[in-house]
Every structure is written in C-alpha cells, then in structure tokens.
C-alpha cells in the first residue's frame, strides 16, 4: 500500500527558491509566470492496513514542519 505526502511552504511564507525558479523561467522567455512555489513529494510504502490517520501523525511529527509548511496526504 502506498501513500504520497505533498509538503509545501504555507501561503504567506516567502519561498526564495520558488522565486528564483520564477526568475529563471522569465529569463528563458516564458512570460506570464506570476508565481512559483516549490515543495516536496514523499512516497511511503506501507504495510497493508495502514491508515490515513497514521500518515497524518507522521506528517505532524516529522515529515512537515507545521510552523512553516502545510501537507496533504494521498492514500493508495
């Protein structure tokens, strides 16, 4: 069983890496990119029977820093 966790900086927390990517896209001629946010995807291979609640607990305890990051869990 698989779970996928998406971790992003919260809205309102400046993302300097995303800004750098936005500038680079602009200099490559891609106009109209108004914002870039960079996050990470964490894939988990879980034993059968694992619940979304357990993955949420993993996010709260380790996978995300909820002071500055938000997360979303996809199961299966």
């Amino acid at each position: 069983m698989k779970a996928r966790v998406y971790v992003m900086l919260k809205n309102g927390v400046l993302d300097p890496q995303g800004e750098a990517v936005r500038h680079a896209l602009g200099s490559l001629g891609f106009d109209g990119v108004e914002g870039v946010r960079q996050g990470k995807v964490i894939e988990l291979d879980l034993a059968e029977g694992a619940t979304e609640a357990t993955v949420t607990e993993m996010c709260e305890k380790l996978l995300a820093n909820t002071v500055i990051e938000s997360y979303r869990v996809e199961m299966g």
């Binding site: 900086l9 927390v13 400046l14 300097p16 890496q17 750098a20 820093n65 002071v67 500055i68």
Partner: peptide, 17 residues
C-alpha cells in the same frame, strides 16, 4: 531546537539563496 519545539519559529532558506 526549533524542530524540537523548545524554541518558537523555524529557519528557512536564506532570502538570497
């Protein structure tokens, strides 16, 4: 110490990268 919660806040990537 911020990750343990003993101190508030978090340290992000430097503004100038």
């Amino acid at each position: 110490l911020t990750e343990t919660g003993l101190l508030p806040g978090a340290l992000r990537r430097n503004g100038g990268l």
